[in-house]
């Protein structure tokens, strides 16, 4: 029987997770294919929650489907769209359907998404959401009322090692761990020397830390992220490497870079694992793992 994500975290093995985005609509065919392809190649699959504030099939629905297919889901929950009643209710629902892992996020701004006039909520923040999970686990809701049947989760949160400035981000990171985060996924990292410095700071806090890996698909994508995505910095040498790839071979170059980074993170024990975000190219995750020479 496959191990739970928590068991893998506690085993000390190099943890490998990947991301799966539910569809815009109810055609779950592609999502199901990605899950089938990846569920036995990674330790757990993250299901995104209206990523980039774009309305989609819910992360909870995707997580339940992964569970039903015999995979290990990590339910992403943002604080953007639900108040504390709805978040707690969804945690009860998730537990009742066997979803055991939750990644707590603040959530992107509504105004970057596809429903720009919607009301944003942020009734709780990510550290408060982690504490909410720990409170529910004690058998009480946030109002102090007793639950008839409790919950148990492996709770995680995120950090952005390339945030600018970094110091306020690190204080938030520490608050998330104090709140009870057992694992931390990072925003995509590319400069592994810089990431090693971050890890020297972060390791003593005890949470398992998984380095975020976003698959580069072109030099233009790398430049776009540098310009537009806060907390992501692709060094010039990697952009040059992508740009130097022969026509039609950029994706292969990106897979090679991702594989090389994962290999180094594992060999040099830079982190406890990796979280692979092959945005829109989920079917390439096995190729990345092959390039890295890692498997479960």
């Amino acid at each position: 029987m496959a191990r739970t994500f928590k068991e893998v975290l506690e085993s000390g093995d190099f943890v490998i997770t990947a991301e799966a985005a539910p569809p815009k609509g109810t055609n779950l065919g592609h999502f199901r294919q990605h899950v089938a392809l990846l569920k036995d190649k990674v330790h757990a699959l993250n299901v995104t929650d209206h990523q980039s504030s774009v309305m989609r099939y819910p992360s909870l629905g995707g997580a339940i489907m992964i569970k039903e297919m015999g995979g290990e889901p990590i339910l992403q929950m943002t604080c953007r769209d639900r108040n504390r009643l709805a978040l707690q209710a969804d945690l009860l629902f998730a537990h009742s359907r066997g979803v055991a892992n939750v990644l707590c996020l603040t959530g992107d701004s509504i105004v970057v998404g596809d429903h720009k006039t919607a009301k944003s909520v942020f009734d709780l923040d990510s550290s408060q959401l982690v504490r909410t999970i720990r409170t529910l686990e004690k058998g009480y809701d946030l109002a102090g009322n007793q639950l008839d049947g409790g919950v148990k989760f492996c709770a995680g949160a995120i950090v952005t090692p390339e945030a600018d400035p970094i110091e306020p981000q690190l204080i938030k990171f520490e608050k998330k761990i104090e709140a009870g985060a057992e694992f931390i996924q990072t925003q995509a990292v590319y400069d592994l020397d810089h990431f090693a410095e971050f890890m020297a700071y972060a390791r003593p806090f005890g949470a398992k830390i998984m380095a975020g890996i976003i698959l580069l698909t072109s030099a233009a994508m790398a430049r776009f992220m540098n310009k537009n995505v806060p907390g992501i910095k692709v060094p010039q040498d990697l952009i040059d490497e992508m740009a130097a790839a022969p026509k039609g071979k950029a994706l292969e170059a990106g897979i090679a870079i991702a594989g090389r980074m994962i290999r180094r993170i594992k060999d040099e024990k830079l982190a406890d694992g990796v979280h692979i975000m092959a945005i829109g190219k989920e079917d390439k995750v096995p190729d990345i793992l092959d390039a890295a020479g890692v498997k479960l």
Binding site: F122, D125, P168, Q169, P230, G231
Partner: peptide
């Protein structure tokens, strides 16, 4: 986002 425990990752 009106956050009271520190910044999000969007700085």
């Amino acid at each position: 986002k009106g956050l009271v425990n520190g910044p999000c990752g969007g700085t």
